[in-house]
């Protein structure tokens, strides 16, 4: 007689427990979802930090650092506005940090450019590919000297001027800094020769090259200081405390 009543009661208890469990599961689900989102964001930041660390480690392994003191800077802005005619970018170090006009700018792959002008805490870097850029180079194999300049056409195109007609420069040769202009140390890669044309009506060969560094993708750079000068000291607050994760504004 009582069994249907007991059955109904059991079913009700079962349903009630499941309902309550569902409410708990829903709450737990929401909590886990938010934790997952947070973990994903942290994983993304960690991956970004790891890549940045790898780039900075590669920068510090640069050969030129054995000859010159250097300091790193971050690219904070690219070409901007109607008056931005030159191929430049802005870095987060200025003349108070040691980034004075003419300071060579490199990355682990090769030459990036040099400081065009500097304010106290930021500087404009003239890229290697700007037609106004000039740098004494020498080819790695045939030791052919010349002056490298940027080119109007093409993102990474360079032109090597004053190459003698009898020079045995070959396509595929790597051009390195000649180290004779007292700014860039000798031996930093600049570009790869892509075309050599004998000049029929001029005294020199026409040599085209491609910049080794993809300047559109540069995020951190190294500024090479003059020999014998000390690298800029960290501000006291930064030197005392351990490194913190940079904020978006610092990035």
């Amino acid at each position: 007689m009582l069994s249907p009543v007991v059955w109904v009661k059991d079913k009700f208890d079962e349903w009630w427990e499941h309902y309550m469990a569902l409410v708990d599961i829903s709450k737990e689900n929401t909590r886990l979802r938010s934790e997952l989102e947070r973990a994903r964001a942290e994983a993304m930041l960690a991956a970004e930090d790891r890549m940045e660390l790898e780039r900075l480690r590669a920068l510090l392994g640069l050969e030129a650092l054995r000859e010159r003191p250097a300091f790193a800077a971050r690219v904070i802005a690219k070409r901007f506005g109607p008056q931005a005619v030159l191929k430049t970018f802005t870095i987060n170090k200025g003349f108070l940090d040691g980034a004075v006009t003419g300071t060579p700018v490199v990355i682990q792959n090769g030459v990036v450019g040099r400081v065009l002008r500097a304010s106290p805490h930021a500087a404009t870097v003239l890229m290697l590919t700007d037609p106004g850029f000039r740098l004494a180079v020498i080819s790695r194999d045939s030791r052919t000297p010349g002056i490298i300049t940027g080119s109007i056409s093409g993102q990474r195109r360079l032109e090597m001027a004053y190459v003698a007609q009898n020079a045995r420069i070959m396509v595929g040769e790597v051009l390195i800094t000649a180290g004779i202009d007292a700014s860039f140390p000798k031996g930093i890669p600049v570009g790869v020769v892509t075309q050599v044309t004998p000049g029929n009506e001029i005294l020199f060969q026409q040599v085209h090259a491609q910049a080794i560094v993809d300047l559109e993708r540069v995020e951190e750079v190294l500024l090479l200081m003059e020999e014998g000068s000390a690298p800029p000291a960290l501000p006291p607050a930064q030197a005392d405390r351990p490194a913190e994760r940079p904020t978006n504004a610092q990035r």
């Binding site: 802005a77 901007f80 109607p82 008056q83 931005a84 030159l86 430049t88």
Partner: peptide
């Protein structure tokens, strides 16, 4: 525009 540009002062 002068600050963000890289020509000498006067263009903007």
């Amino acid at each position: 525009q002068e600050g963000t540009g890289n020509l000498l002062f006067g263009a903007a």
